Computed example of a mutant assay.
Amino acid sequence: MQNLVTVIKNLTKKRLFWPIIALLAVLIFDSIFIDGFLTIELKNGNLYGRIIDIINRSSSLIIITIGMTLVIATGGIDISVGSVVAISGAITVQLLGSGIAPNTPFFLCIIASLAAAALLGCWNGFLVSRIGVQAVVATLILNVAGRGIAQLVTNGQIPTTQYKPFSYLAGFLPHLPIPFSIFIVAVVLTAIVLFVKKTAFGLFVESVGVNSKASRFAGLKAQRIVFATYAICGLCAGIAGLMISSMIKAADSNNAGLLIEMDAILAVAIGGNPMSGGKFSIAASVIGALIIQSLTTTLYAMGVSPEVLPVVKAVVVVIICLFQSEGTHKMILKVLSTHRRLKYEKTV
């Protein structure tokens, strides 16, 4: 019994343990109570199924969550990513035009939208790091104004596009059975992880998040670190905007990325990353994003209406966070230790 307690104690200290347990719990629940949840079919050369839907539809959230993790690790927050998503999609669709052939070369459309998204991230970073505006206030400015900017780009309309290659971003490439969005996530995730782990940037981010003032005294350019995280977050939101608009082949400035910033923040929290900043795990945040999307898919499959969905999701998220809290861990270990002591007393 002592060995079991020690093993459980060591496991619970692993950052990825509780997020993985939470994700497995949701998937096990789905496999039991939702018929055909684990079924994957091959139709017209493409794979279909709820698991595939979860992976595909969580792609944009995962990418935003990656950027949000870095921002939160510095002790900040970005609630403008939903508006950046809308602006990115609006620029791309507007430049492509509604025809089968693009009005602007596709590559230039992508560059323009991503450049605009990165610039908006830089604006947030400038307000927070240079001007000293509180992160919530600085990003709230763009959160409010961003959808108005997207409306200006689209002239208040919902433009559509028939350019087929654009639909591949969130769909299937010819002769490729899995969604192309998976490869986009893999590229972004690999690039960010390598940048964070193979350079000193990740360590600098954690240092700034733990104590920004001490980091400056130690010689770190804390303002530059904070500025860079917001720029990366804006770029990630721009990539997600391309994928979301690609999914509907249109730019919906009012609804594209609506409240996705809340899901991204929840994903970071569910991943066990401290909201106060400091040490972070991108992998844990990615698992958190998968949990959020799994919950959404589960509730829709069970017939929960969109109006009630946020309430049910919030309750489940609270339960998950409680299980990840230090207090819960200590209570579990205390129960196991008490059981072991009582068993020992009986044998004596």
Results as ranks from 00 to 15, higher is better:
W123C: 10
T190N: 11
N255T: 14
W123P: 00
G209T: 11
G148H: 12
K330M: 15
F227Y: 07
A283R: 08
L333P: 02
I8T: 15
S294T: 05
G327F: 05
A256D: 09
E206D: 09
I178R: 05
S167L: 05
L24H: 00
K198H: 15
L120H: 04
G45T: 01
A112Q: 04
A231V: 13
V153T: 08
G146F: 07
L333T: 02
P306E: 05
I87M: 08
A218W: 04
T12R: 13
N103G: 12
L42D: 07
F323E: 10
M1H: 15
F180K: 04
S294I: 09
S58I: 07
R130L: 08
I225M: 00
F29W: 02
S253I: 11
D30A: 06
E261F: 12
G288P: 10
L95H: 05
F201N: 09
I40G: 01
T161P: 01
C109F: 07
C236E: 02
P102E: 08
T229I: 03
Q151G: 11
V185Y: 00
F323G: 14
Q324F: 13
H329P: 00
I8E: 12
D252G: 09
A264I: 13
N3R: 15
N46G: 00
G171M: 12
T338Q: 12
Q94M: 05
L16W: 07
N254D: 11
T160A: 14
K249H: 11
I232C: 00
T74D: 07
L95S: 03
S98R: 03
K249I: 12
A22Q: 05
H329R: 14
K330C: 07
A22T: 04
A231L: 15
A115W: 03
G125N: 12
V81G: 05
H175R: 08
G148D: 08
I225G: 01
L119P: 02
G327T: 14
S88P: 03
E41A: 00
G241E: 04
K330S: 15
A112N: 00
